[in-house]
Design a protein around this nucleic acid. Structure first.
Lengths: 199, 199
DNA sequence: CCATACATGTAAAGGGTTACATGATTAA
DNA sequence: TTAATCATGTAACCCTTTACATGTATGG
């Protein structure tokens, strides 16, 4: 079985909360679910056409005065039904692929600088993500959101928060280990130089 | 810029620890790095041919008596150099795609059963992964491994361990929340039935 | 006899990103 | 004037998995 495409369902999901344009869809998705899902225009526009062809959405021209062409997509009852059935199926898990860990795995004791840099970059990134998620968690109950889905939204935020916390903790520990390794390397090099002082 | 392929480098990395066949490569990769990296034969065999064509590996016939055709791949100095340069470049992060969270995000208060099932399945899976990683962490210092890389290997295991712990904790919390929601739903349904007892 | 492990490899198909093309409006 | 935002859409290309084809040996 080929892995079924999920893009159309992600779009149906967003449209089940209200009609949106292709541009809106990407923005809304990245603002609300951006920490665990992403879509690009190259996926969105063809998928919207396909959804409308299948009668799962309906397209309405919605150009704003003085603005560029714009279309709103509305979910149909058939679309809601398709979404509901997809939601009931078990989620598929992607095979793991973490390039940072792969590089770390093959790294050499004599080249500690690069991993130390990446760990610091990841720490900065992840600290920012954590701040972002916690802000969202605070604002969520006060936001203009569907009461029915707040609990589920909160669960996704908590997932990301916990993963992020774990990553931050790992970065801190790993950075200090790498720093120690770097010092040890420097000492070895100094010792080697003392034994054969060429310059 | 197109995303550079990482499969050849993953293979070079494994081969930098010793000559292996295509079949071995997949087994070794999944045994040592399987928690954060995966490769399929459909990637491995074409990549090995390409590596040999570029002079980064050398192929030797190594058929075992009475066995099927078998070839060992050995990394060349040029291959080591290419690997070293790749290791120095910053790792790329994949855009996030977590289908479980996506489904949870779009779930409805009236359909809590499915998410509860998935959370339980994930808890079982992740508990097992955690056991596996901890066993590896214990065995690592006693194993017949390259002393130079043990520290790095340990870092990758610690990363996976922390992520896994975070996931387990999230599952437990989420399952209890979902169970409460399920009870509330049942109460609402009973109440509705009392108001209009049809059967 | 059948399933599994060993072992190499191809073909098809789908999933996804990036870059590009196009063009209006607004703010610096 | 330049950059950013709004807005739709296409084409190229790559990455990856899955299914299949082929065959030997071993253990239950």
């Amino acid at each position: 079985m080929r892995t079924a495409r999920t893009t159309p369902f992600a779009l149906l999901g967003m449209l089940s909360l209200g009609a949106l344009s292709g541009y809106d869809l990407r923005r809304e998705l990245s603002e609300t679910a951006g920490t665990f899902w992403s879509e690009s225009y190259g996926q969105i526009y063809p998928a919207l056409r396909e959804l409308s062809r299948k009668g799962l959405t309906r397209r309405h021209a919605a150009r704003r005065p003085g603005g560029p062409a714009r279309y709103l997509y509305e979910i149909t009852p058939k679309g809601r039904d398709t979404l509901r059935r997809w939601l009931a199926e078990p989620p598929r898990v992607a095979p793991p692929r973490n390039e940072l860990l792969l590089k770390l795995f093959f790294s050499d004791r004599d080249a500690v600088d690069a991993p130390a840099l990446w760990a610091r970059a990841l720490l900065a990134e992840e600290t920012e993500r954590l701040r972002h998620v916690r802000r969202m968690k605070e604002q969520l109950p006060r936001g203009p959101h569907h009461q029915r889905s707040i609990r589920f939204w909160m669960m996704t935020l908590e997932y990301v928060e916990r993963q992020s916390e774990a990553t931050v903790a790992w970065c801190q520990r790993t950075i200090s280990t790498l720093d120690l390794m770097q010092e040890a390397l420097a000492r070895r090099r100094t010792a080697a130089q003392r034994r054969s002082p060429l310059e």
